[in-house]
Every structure is written in C-alpha cells, then in structure tokens.
Simulated assay, not measured.
Amino acid sequence: MTRPFRFGVVAPITTDLPTWRACVRRVADSGYSTLLMPDVPQWQPAPGPTLATAAALADLRVGTWVYASPIRPAWMTAWEAHSLSVLTDGRFELGIGTGRPGIEDELREKGLPIVPPGERLGQVRETVRALRDLDGPDRHTPVTIAVRGPNARALAAEVADTVTFTQMPDEPRGEIARLARDFLAVRDLELALHVPFVGDARAPFMAPPGADPAAVRAADSLAILPDDPAAAAEEIQRRREEIGFSYFVFGADFADKLAPVVAKLAGR
C-alpha cells in the first residue's frame, strides 16, 4: 500500500507570541498536517499547553516530537496525551522515545534518576499501555515512537501507529533505508522522516549546532533535502517509492520555503 504524503513542522516558541501564532496559522494554511513540539524546557513553555493553544488557533493536528520517557512518570505522560486528544477533538498525536543524546546530563540537572536504556523502553511501553486504558474503546490517540535498536523496533511494531528512526545527521541513507525496509517487512505502518537540513541551512532545534550541511550532503544522508522546491518534491517522492517514508517533518524555519512542496504532494 502506498500511503499518502503528510508533512509536519516542529515549531517551538523561539520568538514573541504574536509571531509564533502567525507561524501556526501559516503552517495550517499551507497544508501541513501537524504542528509539533519538542520536549526541551530551555526552548519553550511545556508542550501540553503550547499544543492546546496551537490547536485552538488553527485547524490542524498537533503532537509531540518527541517526549523523552525518562523525564516524567509514564502515567503522567499518558494522562496528558489523553487529555490533549480529548481537548483537540482527536487531533493530538503522541510522539515518544527514550531520550535524545545527552539526556543523562538533563536528568542529573533535574535531580532525576539515570534510567538505563532498557528501563526507558519499558517506560515507553507503560506510557502507551496507560494511554490505551485512558482512551478506552471509543478513542485511539495515535502514537509515534522514535526507535533505533532491535528492542525499540520490536516495541514499535507492536504498539505504534507511526515510526521514526533516530539518526546522526551525516549518516548515509543506506543504513536508514535498510532499517526502514526491515521494519516494513515486519509490520506495514506509517514511516516518518526527521529532516533538519534544507540546502545549506539547518533548523537550529532539530540537529546538533556543529553539524555541517556539506558533510550531510556528501554522505547522501536522508537528513537533508535540496534547496530548490521542485528538486525537494522529486526527492521526497523518491524516498517514498524506494524506502517507504510518507510523513516528513521539517523545522519551522523551512515551513514557508517548502510550502510549494506541501501544496503539490500533501494527501497524494
């Protein structure tokens, strides 16, 4: 089955509120599916109230990209996700993973326990289980899980609606393509791709500060798209045809530039 394209924008509040509100409305008007929030306290207000605000501003889906499971109790994340699903009339998507690189330092700063990777994955499982209990038989909050290792991929194949693969910016596409194809051989579901680079520009909150677009391009990485919208649209179609990615997530800095791509491809 060929899944229709959809597109998301990661848009933390890095400006004044009127500018951010205008960005939310432009994202919706441009045909993007989802406005997404990272789970980084230094960048913005908490994801829950921020996403509720975005959903009230425009008719689009909202979601986390992605909650770090070691930061909060599983039941609290599940309760917040279910509440957002209810308050947005089913337009919320829970994105969750075991934490970005360096999460241990953040846990120490907050006085939280350093949770081993295997336990973090257990927290993801418990969060989804608690969310399904809260949703009950009449609601299904979509879940996106960020994965890499075999245990994480197995969990996602069991409980996720969408999967995204964590990757280093300069990682060659062949490895991620292999992970995607192997995953789809187990379960056919939506694959999402995190794209922090367009041309020579980097979305500042989606890739490490020192990442070099030239090195990313030289590696033929999936983390970058061409600067030209027509070429970007062709490459996106190639990635769906050859690998299976149909959901593409960009930084807010690129939302206007890639709006022609979204207008051409969204829903097709």
Rank of each mutant, 00 (worst) to 15 (best):
A232C: 02
T15K: 06
L184P: 00
R25H: 09
T2F: 07
D212R: 06
V24L: 12
G97Y: 03
T166R: 04
A230L: 08
T144E: 07
T164A: 11
V262M: 06
G118L: 13
F183M: 06
W75F: 11
I243R: 12
D29P: 03
R217L: 04
T127F: 08
E190D: 12
R26T: 13
T50W: 05
G199M: 13
L258A: 06
V147P: 00
H82V: 03
A223E: 05
F254M: 12
I145P: 01
G97W: 01
E235M: 13
V186P: 01
S69K: 01
A259N: 11
P209H: 00
R6Y: 04
G251N: 04
G251W: 00
L35V: 15
G111V: 10
G48Q: 09
A201G: 03
A203L: 13
A214C: 02
T2K: 09
V262Y: 08
D138K: 07
A68C: 13
A207D: 04
T162F: 09
V261Y: 07
N151H: 14
G174Q: 05
H194C: 05
M37C: 13
P101K: 06
N151W: 10
V249L: 05
L258M: 14
I236L: 15
G111H: 08
M37R: 02
W43Q: 15
A214R: 15
A211R: 04
A81Q: 05
A78W: 07
E175R: 14
E175H: 14
G267E: 11
P226A: 10
G97E: 02
P101Q: 08
V216T: 10
D188F: 07
V27S: 03
R25Y: 07
R268D: 14
L57N: 00
L87C: 09
Q42W: 09
D138Q: 11
L51Q: 01
E158R: 12
D105G: 12
V9A: 07
G102L: 05
A156N: 06
G99Q: 04
D228L: 05
E241N: 09
R61E: 14
P260V: 08
F245K: 02
S221V: 07
P142A: 13
R100K: 10
A130H: 02
A223S: 15
E126S: 08
H140M: 01
A233T: 10
G48H: 12
R120T: 04
G118N: 10
R125I: 01
L112F: 00
P47Q: 08
P150W: 06
P226F: 09
D16H: 02
E93T: 15
V261M: 11
A214N: 10
A231T: 12
D29N: 11
V10E: 07
D138N: 10
L179V: 04
I176P: 00
R6G: 02
P142W: 02
L191P: 00
H140F: 02
A46K: 07
I103A: 12
L191V: 08
S69A: 15
P73L: 08
R61I: 01
T164S: 11
D89S: 15
A160H: 03
